[in-house]
């Protein structure tokens, strides 16, 4: 019997498709195994990279990913805090805050040192109007760097606002809502830190 005849048999179809499925799944299993470690490492590196963005270089020498604490927020949800240490000594904390922007939530990562001074602020994710509100991106302007070194007392709490509202932070032409939201969120982050300082340290 030649191949052409066998191919038309009803029994040939499940055999063929089953075999192909077997080979496919086996090769997938192998590929998954081969790439598992590399993928995990790449993802950890991603997170580490973004954490290190808000921390001055050489500020921490510990693995932030392995030194975390979860704290309850006012609304009951949990917030993950990464603790930074140098020579085993706690010297700062990195965490996410969220602001209510013009077109949706703005996710912000910020780092604060032991004295409650801002070490760095980066916007991770937002849906602000391109060309207007997206200047909060570090890639589109250095605006978020103006937070560096600020704390709850410097400037004074009532000056924690954009210039239009009598504060010290610039707004961008055509968009006030976005910077206003970021300022408010960062201020909230500072307040959160000062409230939970002891827990973070503990």
């Amino acid at each position: 019997m030649n191949l052409d005849k066998i191919r038309e048999k009803t029994g040939y179809q499940p055999l063929l498709l089953g075999l192909v499925a077997l080979l496919a799944s086996a090769s997938l299993a192998w590929a998954a195994h081969a790439t598992k470690d590399a993928i995990a490492a790449a993802e950890a590196k991603d997170l580490r990279d973004s954490l290190s963005q808000v921390l001055p270089p050489g500020f921490a020498d510990n693995d932030l990913l392995g030194d975390t604490i979860e704290l309850a927020q006012a609304d009951g949800s949990k917030r993950l805090i990464y603790r930074s240490r140098k020579a085993g000594q706690l010297n700062g904390a990195v965490f996410k805050v969220e602001g209510k922007g013009y077109a949706g939530p703005i996710q912000i990562l910020m780092a604060v040192d032991q004295e409650g001074r801002i070490l760095g602020v980066r916007v991770l994710k937002h849906t602000e109007t391109p060309g207007l509100g997206d200047k909060i991106d570090v890639g589109k302007g250095g605006w978020v760097k103006t937070f560096d070194g600020k704390s709850l007392d410097d400037p004074a709490p009532e000056q924690w606002a954009v210039k239009k509202d009598g504060g010290v932070f610039d707004q961008f032409a055509g968009a006030t809502i976005t910077p206003r939201a970021v300022v408010k969120a960062v201020k909230g982050g500072l307040e959160f830190f000062s409230q939970h300082k002891s827990e973070i340290e503990g």
Partner: peptide, 25 residues
Amino acid sequence: MIAAILSLTILGAALGLILGIAGRF
């Protein structure tokens, strides 16, 4: 892992059977 490979293979065989029968009728 084995379970995944096995289930995919059986799925393939079963679908192949259906197609084979369908092709006939």
